[in-house]
């Protein structure tokens, strides 16, 4: 029995958020603390890689924010992630779509995958 998986399961890492992979467009509702106040910020972008397993799994998402590329790496078990929504499933041919960094505009589109 894989005891590392038992630890990960005790934190419900796999069931807490929907499944997604590279090429999918997701929205992360991220909790931000400002002094004593807490508010939720939404970050929508394309997942360019999912890395690691269990509790140490992280994902990188990228979006173009007024013509500047912004990338964020988030641990999937972070307590600051309020919610993850999958907006679009994309069809890509590799697990890490770094080539997207070099593409802009119409070239940076990803075909939608039928489910």
């Amino acid at each position: 029995m894989d005891l590392m998986k038992v630890v990960a399961d005790s934190y419900n890492v796999e069931t807490k958020h929907p499944e997604f992979g590279a090429g999918d467009t997701i929205t992360v509702h991220y909790k931000i603390k400002e002094g004593n106040k807490e508010r939720i910020q939404q970050f929508r972008g394309i997942v360019i890689q999912v890395k690691g397993t269990g509790l140490t799994k992280t994902f990188t998402m990228r979006k173009m924010s007024s013509n500047v590329g912004v990338e964020r790496i988030l641990p999937i078990s972070s307590p600051f992630i309020d919610k993850i929504e999958v907006n679009k499933y994309g069809r890509v041919r590799r697990a890490r779509i770094y080539y997207l960094r070099e593409l802009t505009g119409k070239k940076a589109r990803i075909k939608e995958r039928r489910r």
């Binding site: 005891l3 590392m4 269990g54 509790l55 140490t56 641990p75 078990s77 972070s78 307590p79 600051f80």
Partner: peptide, 21 residues
């Protein structure tokens, strides 16, 4: 010793941990 991982504490800090059976 089983291995190492990291968990988030109540304060939201990422804490490195060793798993021991």
């Amino acid at each position: 010793k089983i291995g190492m991982t990291s968990i988030f504490s109540a304060e939201g800090k990422n804490v490195p941990c060793t798993v021991i059976e």
